[in-house]
Amino acid sequence: MHYNKPRKQTPKGVTNASVTQKGDKLTGPSALGTAKMKDPEMVPLLEVIDTLNTLFDDLSESAVAGLMALVIQAAKSDEVLRSRALENSLENFLKSEKVRDRILDTLLAAPGELGRLVAEVVGDGKGLDSIIAGAFHGVRLDVEQDDS
């Protein structure tokens, strides 16, 4: 029988890639030089997700991202939502009762932890406009990426 002897690891110094825990959220390095998102088409969607993370700080970032993925996928596959996102301004998209109803139907079908988030959104309306805006930006980003 032959086996490899474990190698002794030597410390190589402290790196700036550490991750710390702040409440339930993980944060990475924040020093100057930290890379920023360079794709300007993603900025509106990232702003929506940041807003939702702030509004629902008791939920994990993965739950918020999962909710947005669910809503964006529903908006991309629903012809009414897709066409309204492409043909209207964000302001008009947000005002549409048909859009609101379809997004709420998607939210109400959300499973697990997402269901708890939905109860908060539907219960007092907080974050609903941000979620609808996320669907708007997600559809437009999808079309822009297909066109490139």
Rank of each mutant, 00 (worst) to 15 (best):
Lys22Phe: 02
Val19Tyr: 02
Val71Gly: 04
Val48Lys: 03
Ala75Trp: 00
Lys12Leu: 05
Thr106Tyr: 13
Ile131Ser: 12
Ala65Asp: 03
Leu46Asn: 12
Gly138Phe: 07
Arg84Asp: 13
Leu104Trp: 01
Asn92Ile: 12
Arg140Tyr: 03
Val122Ile: 12
Ser130Tyr: 04
Ala35Thr: 09
Lys126Ser: 11
Met1Trp: 06
Gln145Glu: 15
Glu61Gly: 07
Lys76Val: 01
Leu117Ser: 04
Asp124Asn: 14
Met37Asn: 15
Gly123Ile: 13
Ile132His: 04
Val122Arg: 06
Val71Glu: 02
Asp124Glu: 12
Ser89Ala: 01
Ser148Trp: 04
Lys22Thr: 03
Ser62Ile: 07
Val71Arg: 00
Val99Trp: 03
Leu90Pro: 01
Glu87Asp: 15
Ala65Asn: 09
Asp50Trp: 04
Asp24Cys: 05
Pro6Asp: 08
Val71Gln: 10
Val19Gly: 04
Met1Tyr: 04
Glu113His: 06
Val121Ser: 09
Gln73Cys: 08
Phe136Trp: 10
Glu144Arg: 08
Gly125Glu: 05
Gly125Tyr: 02
Asp101Cys: 05
Ala31Glu: 13
Phe56Glu: 11
Gly112Cys: 09
Asn88Asp: 10
Phe56Ala: 01
Glu113Trp: 08
Arg100Thr: 15
Lys38Glu: 13
Gly13Cys: 12
Leu114Gly: 14
Val118Ser: 11
Glu87Ile: 00
Val99Ala: 04
Asp101Thr: 08
Asp105Arg: 15
Gly13Phe: 07
Asn4Lys: 05
Glu47Arg: 14
Val121Pro: 00
Ile103Gly: 00
Arg102Asp: 05
Ser96Val: 13
